Amino acid sequence: MLTLNHFNFNVSNLERSLQFYQEALGLREVQRKAPEDGRFIIVFLGDGKTDFRLELTWLRDHPQPYDLGECEFHLAMQAEDYDAAHARHKAMGCICYENQEMGIYFISDPDGYWIEIIPAR
């Protein structure tokens, strides 16, 4: 039996991404890995409720923006207070797509990754 452990996004500016994920989604750093030569930094973020982690990877030798293709993948997060989350994300200016018929919306992180926000069901 396999269980979900983590999902990775490579980021171009680690500090900017850490600030975004804390402000937008309430995720906090739970683990960090960095070799002495500084070629990469891996930070795992958690929600404080589940064991699932979001891994942010910064690579020193990848200065160009990441090519996300058609962005046909995304991470989904459930909002306990959907209206409050929507208001916060609207104020941050990070909502990139809304589907009112389905009752969901997406935000975009600083590198262009999409995160789906769904209400508690």
Results as ranks from 00 to 15, higher is better:
1 M>S: 15
1 M>E: 14
2 L>T: 09
2 L>N: 13
2 L>S: 13
3 T>I: 07
5 N>V: 10
7 F>A: 12
8 N>Y: 12
9 F>D: 01
10 N>K: 11
10 N>T: 14
11 V>C: 00
12 S>Y: 05
12 S>G: 14
12 S>C: 09
13 N>I: 02
13 N>Q: 13
14 L>N: 10
14 L>K: 08
15 E>G: 09
15 E>Q: 12
15 E>M: 07
16 R>I: 14
17 S>G: 00
19 Q>H: 13
19 Q>A: 15
20 F>P: 02
22 Q>F: 06
24 A>C: 03
25 L>H: 00
25 L>V: 01
25 L>C: 01
26 G>W: 11
26 G>L: 07
27 L>D: 01
28 R>H: 15
29 E>W: 03
30 V>F: 03
32 R>G: 00
33 K>L: 07
33 K>R: 08
35 P>M: 06
35 P>T: 11
35 P>F: 07
35 P>S: 12
36 E>C: 05
36 E>R: 13
36 E>T: 08
37 D>Q: 03
38 G>S: 04
38 G>A: 06
38 G>H: 05
39 R>A: 06
39 R>T: 14
40 F>K: 12
40 F>P: 11
40 F>H: 08
41 I>C: 08
41 I>A: 09
42 I>K: 15
43 V>Q: 03
43 V>H: 01
45 L>E: 02
47 D>R: 01
48 G>H: 04
48 G>Y: 05
49 K>Y: 06
51 D>G: 13
53 R>A: 11
53 R>F: 10
55 E>M: 12
55 E>G: 12
55 E>D: 10
56 L>R: 09
57 T>V: 10
58 W>T: 08
58 W>E: 05
58 W>N: 03
61 D>S: 13
63 P>T: 10
66 Y>E: 10
67 D>V: 07
68 L>P: 00
69 G>P: 07
70 E>F: 11
70 E>P: 08
74 H>M: 10
74 H>S: 10
75 L>A: 06
75 L>E: 01
75 L>I: 15
77 M>G: 01
77 M>H: 10
77 M>T: 03
78 Q>H: 04
78 Q>W: 02
78 Q>S: 07
79 A>M: 00
79 A>P: 00
79 A>S: 04
80 E>N: 07
80 E>I: 06
82 Y>C: 09
86 H>Y: 11
86 H>E: 13
86 H>F: 09
87 A>T: 15
91 A>V: 14
91 A>M: 11
91 A>P: 13
91 A>T: 06
92 M>W: 12
92 M>S: 07
93 G>M: 02
93 G>H: 02
96 C>Q: 13
96 C>E: 05
97 Y>A: 08
98 E>F: 00
100 Q>A: 11
101 E>L: 06
101 E>W: 14
102 M>H: 11
104 I>C: 01
106 F>M: 04
106 F>K: 06
107 I>N: 00
107 I>V: 14
108 S>E: 15
108 S>I: 10
111 D>H: 04
112 G>A: 02
112 G>W: 03
113 Y>D: 02
113 Y>G: 01
114 W>Y: 12
115 I>E: 00
116 E>P: 06
117 I>V: 15
117 I>C: 05
119 P>L: 00
119 P>F: 01
120 A>Y: 07
120 A>S: 09
121 R>Q: 14
121 R>Y: 04
